[in-house]
Amino acid sequence: MRTEARAAVLREYGAPFTVESFPRPEPEPGALVVDIDAATVCGSDVHVWLGHMAGRLPISPPLILGHEMAGTVTAVGAGAEVDSLGRPVRVGDRVVWAHTPCGHCYQCTVEREPTQCAARYIGYLNDCSKPPHFTGTFAEVGYVIPRAGRLVVPEKVKSSWAAAGSCALRTVVRALAVAGSITPQDRVVVQGAGPLGLFATALLSLRSPRQLVVVGGPADRLVLAKDWGATDVVSIEDFPEAAGRVEAVRELTGGGPSVAFELAGAPGAIAEGVDMTGPNGRYVVMGTLGGERQSVDAARIVHKGLTIRGSMSGDIGDYHVALDTLERFSDRFDWDLMLGREYGLHELDTAMNAMRGMAEIKPVLVPGLS
């Protein structure tokens, strides 16, 4: 086995990535070392690359981005012989792994909300110049720190599916749990037709709501939304102004949905969602992670009696549900339709721009490609 491995390194916000080599790590007790099979690009990676998170989070280059991944175990540290469900972990197994809460703060211990842990370790936001170096997953190697939740990937789940599922789908799993019960009587709206919105459409369709409306674009993504269970779509190309989209949704749903999900992250999306959600509706916000402050008509929240909840990321249990969903429903949903083309490490700039420009839903980085 080689003593070094390569990674795509962000040295300056907005600048091209550089492919660099670092010493291949040895696992400390509780840790795993993996070879990355596939890592998909997330919108959060794009935001960090462009510097949108600078000042909001205590991060600075050099960074190895990437946090949606599946990899093959090459070394197992002492005490790391089982995954988070107690299943054996051996060299040659494929795994995904989670961000790591501290485990001893109020949010972790009392509220049981590890996604709100202020000290949570998020690998790709850490300085990669320090050992073990492989903090993110746009690299040939990934390092699973001792406390990190980890799961063996089911045999029937492709590594590229598992990579996308390890962030976008598990985030949607958590958002649906936050939303509460969704019944065949509900009319549901999904704002956004990106990875979050499309995964949400698939999962929501399994709950058989009376109506499932997806608001977004481009047109090919709305076609996929219909294939995955949307009863209606509202195109942002046909309705470029928020007022037109709100009116279209109200007309389709007979006054507004009973449940809505903000999965777009676009400027003004939350104000638009508040306007379109029906009386006594529930509105789950999870797509907006940065950007400028948004103005919301607070009186509408009061007058309509809305319940608004934020939802952030997901925990290792959400990862398990995501992997189980990918495996159980692969006959119903063609998960490959979510994925773009495969890129090597030296093509990461192109992959990131494909994500940024909405040319692809989920570009796939395969570090082994030349």
Rank of each mutant, 00 (worst) to 15 (best):
R2V: 03
E4H: 10
R6I: 03
A7S: 14
L10R: 15
L10E: 04
R11G: 15
E12W: 01
Y13V: 09
G14W: 01
G14Q: 07
A15V: 00
F17C: 06
V19L: 09
E20V: 10
F22I: 14
P23T: 02
R24D: 02
P25F: 12
P25K: 07
P29D: 14
I36W: 12
T40Y: 01
S44I: 13
H47F: 03
H47A: 14
G51T: 12
G51Y: 10
R56F: 15
I59V: 14
P62N: 12
I64Y: 06
M69D: 08
V73A: 05
V73S: 08
T74H: 11
A75D: 06
G79W: 11
A80S: 07
D83F: 08
D83G: 12
S84Y: 11
L85M: 04
G86T: 01
G86N: 03
G86H: 04
P88Q: 08
D93P: 09
D93H: 13
R94Y: 05
V95N: 08
V95P: 14
V96F: 03
H99L: 11
C105N: 07
C105F: 04
Q107E: 10
T109D: 05
E111M: 02
R112T: 00
T115W: 05
T115L: 04
Q116H: 11
C117K: 12
A118C: 04
A118N: 05
R120Y: 07
Y121V: 07
Y121H: 13
Y121K: 01
G123K: 02
L125E: 08
D127R: 15
F134M: 02
T135W: 07
T137L: 09
A139N: 08
V144I: 12
P146T: 15
P146Y: 10
P154V: 14
P154S: 14
P154H: 11
K158G: 10
S160W: 00
A164N: 04
G165E: 09
R170D: 04
R174E: 15
V178Q: 02
T183E: 01
P184A: 07
V189N: 00
P195V: 10
L198V: 12
L198D: 08
R207N: 00
R210M: 12
V213T: 14
P218H: 01
A219M: 02
V223N: 08
L224T: 09
V233I: 14
V234H: 06
E237Y: 02
E237V: 04
F239R: 09
A243T: 03
G244H: 09
E247K: 15
V259H: 12
L263C: 15
P267W: 10
G273F: 13
G273V: 13
D275R: 15
M276T: 06
M276G: 01
T277Y: 11
R282F: 00
V284G: 06
G291K: 06
E292T: 11
R293I: 00
S295M: 12
A299P: 00
R300F: 04
H303A: 07
K304Q: 14
R309H: 13
R309C: 09
M312D: 00
I316T: 10
I316R: 04
Y319M: 10
Y319L: 13
Y319A: 05
Y319F: 15
L323G: 01
E327G: 07
R328M: 09
D334I: 04
M338V: 07
G344N: 01
L345D: 07
E347H: 12
E347S: 13
D349H: 02
A351N: 03
A359W: 10
I361F: 06
L365W: 00
V366C: 08
G368K: 03
S370R: 02
